[in-house]
Each structure stands twice: as structure tokens, then as C-alpha cells.
Write a protein that binds this DNA or RNA. Sequence first.
DNA 1: GGCCAAAATTGATCTGGGTCAACCGCGTTT
DNA 2: AAACGCGGTTGACCCAGATCAATTTTGGCC
Lengths: 237, 237
Amino acid sequence: MKPSVVTIEPNGHFCSDCAVRGSAVCSSLDAAELKEFEHLGRRVHFSSGETVFSEEDITTSFYNVLEGVMRLYKLLPDGRRQIVGFALPGDFLGMNLSGRHNFSADAIGAVTVCQFAKAPFGRFIEDRPQLLRRINELAIRELSQARDHMVLLGRRSADEKVAAFLLGWRERLLALKGPSDTVPLPMSRQDIADYLGLTIETVSRTFTKLERHGAIEIIHGGISLLDPARVEALAAA
Amino acid sequence: MKPSVVTIEPNGHFCSDCAVRGSAVCSSLDAAELKEFEHLGRRVHFSSGETVFSEEDITTSFYNVLEGVMRLYKLLPDGRRQIVGFALPGDFLGMNLSGRHNFSADAIGAVTVCQFAKAPFGRFIEDRPQLLRRINELAIRELSQARDHMVLLGRRSADEKVAAFLLGWRERLLALKGPSDTVPLPMSRQDIADYLGLTIETVSRTFTKLERHGAIEIIHGGISLLDPARVEALAAA
DNA sequence: GGCCAAAATTGATCTGGGTCAACCGCGTTT
DNA sequence: AAACGCGGTTGACCCAGATCAATTTTGGCC
């Protein structure tokens, strides 16, 4: 992706009516703190395919996803890619020890983030253990997800991977958009393949197989879960 | 493994001369805090193969590994196992959100841990943001390792997996035992296979292949890196 | 030492998913 | 509307690693 020309809203946004107010890092802050916090972040927009940060970049900012979906991935020198996760509104990105991001992040479709410069954010945390605790919670949640994903990558068959992915993705959207058997899939087949450790052909074939068996219906921009129980059985867990 | 009969040293240990004093969670505490901290933990021994905690258990304790090696793993209902990591002295276990461990932990050989009851430990952290920050650091480091491992599981060949494992394991031991081309492997071939998402036969064959090519020598309880550069080239990153 | 069980190695064969290649559908450009 | 490009699907074939099946080696334990 080409270097992005980002649009920065100069000001005029308020944390208090932010869409992710309840679920993001800032959920640990009270009204007074929020007022102060407001000055630290700035909304930044990225359009489809733009890279928000790269693996080898020195970390200068933290990011709070407000809208849209991002793919988080690592590349091997020869170009093989592993997507380590998809980021959704409420997710917090940029934590690391080395001072460098250890994965890259691209926008899938239009994305809005709340960007914080590293230093002032660090200072703000300093005397607010509540916020640190919240960040720790998010890290631990991600760690748990990462371990689940290791099981999927190391020990599950292609069918199980795809079924587990569909259910897991639906589950994540549930918190954001409410329950639905229609599961939008904004990412490409290649993204799904790189997330599951498969090839694009295998993902495609598995989708059509699920459809032939009446478990799902492939619709434009996503799938419809016709038989959730069947898909759950396939996911085998 | 059968329910363990653990040996508890009644008292008489001191954090100040603990082997992992410098690297573990407690590295964030000063001398005075350490004095208080000392009363919270108790040393517990486990012998080879004993289970320290299980995936579905409710978390009642945190653990700081003092001596030995543990395998951390998740099981699928049908018995397939994925080892999500090996714990070494200095590693901190038990953090979670759900109130349940999300993986199981067995001793590989004799293990000593410093065990903390959840509630008092939580209270101790309460007004010690330094300790919380340290725990956060450890979580972030693990997260980074978890992502690397996802790349390995999803996108690397068997040869690359084995080579990367040997180098990674040597790297971890470096911090504990100093540099060496002799790499002890206390875990079984089955453990290695379940860590790499392979079968025991493939691990065994890959070892012998590496030996035939003169890259390593298989010795009792481990391997010797005869040609580190060759192994690094095989690991392909 | 000799015996047994578990761990590791090795060989033969099979197969799930990868690779290579053709093709389809659809939105965009000219 | 023809031509193009791109994401996705489908088919034919192949191979890395799994599976199945013997051995061989190792490690307690009387």
C-alpha cells in the first residue's frame, strides 16, 4: 500500500459521546479525567488498504480503533503472511516493549482511529493505575485469544478452521452490532486464508462445501448462517 | 496426571536471595516492599509430570516459576493438544480475565514455583502501580511471543518449525544459563511436536535429517548445535 | 545384570490441503 | 459495449507431512 495521506480532524470531537466510550481503554476514566484525556487523542481517518503502521516502525503512537476493521499481520522475508488478528472498534493497538510495533496494521475499508502520541499518553497513565489496569485487561484478553488461535493454527483441520472463524467473527460482531445470523465479511478471501493458515483456494472450496451442505449461504460481502448448530459441530470445540 | 501431593516449605525462604529476583515480577519491588511481599508467596514443589493447574480450573493462585520447566497447553475435546508455550524460571502464570485459567500447566521434570493466593496478591498490587506495570510488561512480552508463534504455526514448513524451535529455545536458555551451543531439551518429542503443530514422527525425522546434514548432533537429553548458521538459514527468519 | 514399559526412531503408505491453471462474474475504463 | 482487471471459484494433479506399523533405544526397578 502507498504511503497514506491521512485526514486529521483538527478538533471538535468529544470523548463523552464517542462510540467506543464504554468498551475501549477510556472506559476506566471518570468524567473529569475524560475531559483531560480528550486533548491527548486526535481522530485520524484511513481509507481502504492504507497501512496504519508497519512491523518494523518505531512506535510513536497508540491507537484506539473507533470505526472500521483492520488486519494485523506479520510477514516472513519471502512474503508469506500470517494475519495475527483483526482489530475492531474498541481495540487498543500499539503496546510493545521493544519500542517497535511487532506487527503491521492495514485498514480494511474505511477506518477511524483515535491516535495518541506515545509520550503524553505515557505521562497520562503514570498516575492513573485504573487506566493501566484497563490496558492490562485488554492485553490479557488478547493473550487468551492468541492462545486460542494457536490451537486453531496448529491442531485444527481446514473445515474446523473455517467453521471456527465464522463463529468467532460472528461472536465478535455480536458485541458491536447485536445478534445476527448474517455475518458480514469485510476482509478478502486472501485475508481469511492468511488468518487461518490456509490458501485462498482451500478457503473458497470450504465455503462452497458448507454452502452445498446447507450450513451457510454465501452472500455478497459475507455469509448467512443457515444452520448455526451444524457449523458449531464442524468447529469441534 | 494424577492429583498431586505437593510439598510445601513451611517458611524460611527469602525473596532477597531468590534465583529469579532480577527477572521475575518481583524485580519491580524495592527492598522494603520485598520484605512484605515475602509473606505472600510460598514455595511449592512439583515433580515430573504433575499438573500445576488445569484449563478449566477456577483461578485461586498466581505462580512465579523459580526452577524447572513447565509445558502450557490447551486440549481439544477429542484429545488433540496444542502446547502454547514452555514456562521457565522468572515466568509469571495465572493472569486471566474470566476467573479461570485458560490453559493447563504441567511440570516437565522437577519444578519449584512461588505460589500466591489470588486475593492477597490482588490487594498487594492495588497500591503498587510499579508491580502492575511489571505484570503488564510480562503480558506484552508474552503477547509478542504468541504472535511469533502464530506465524510459525500457520506459515512455516516442518523444517523451519524445528529449526526455529531449536534456536528459540537456545535463546531463552541463554538468559538463564549463559551462551552455549549445547541445547538441553527436557521436554519429550511429543511435547515438541505439540508445540510445533506437527507429529512426533515428523519431529524425529527432522532431527535425524538435521543430524545427517551435520547441522546438529543429537545427544542425550538435548542437541548440540554444530552449525548454528546452517540452522538459522533453515529457520528462514 | 535382566526385565519391562515408555520413548524414540525408521520405514511404507496414504491423504488433506497445496500448487498450478483455467475460468467466471462484475465493476471500471475507454 | 468492448476490453480490462481483479477477486473469487473450480478442476486436475502433486507432495509435505500424517498415519500405520514395526523395530530399536532408553530408563527405571528388582
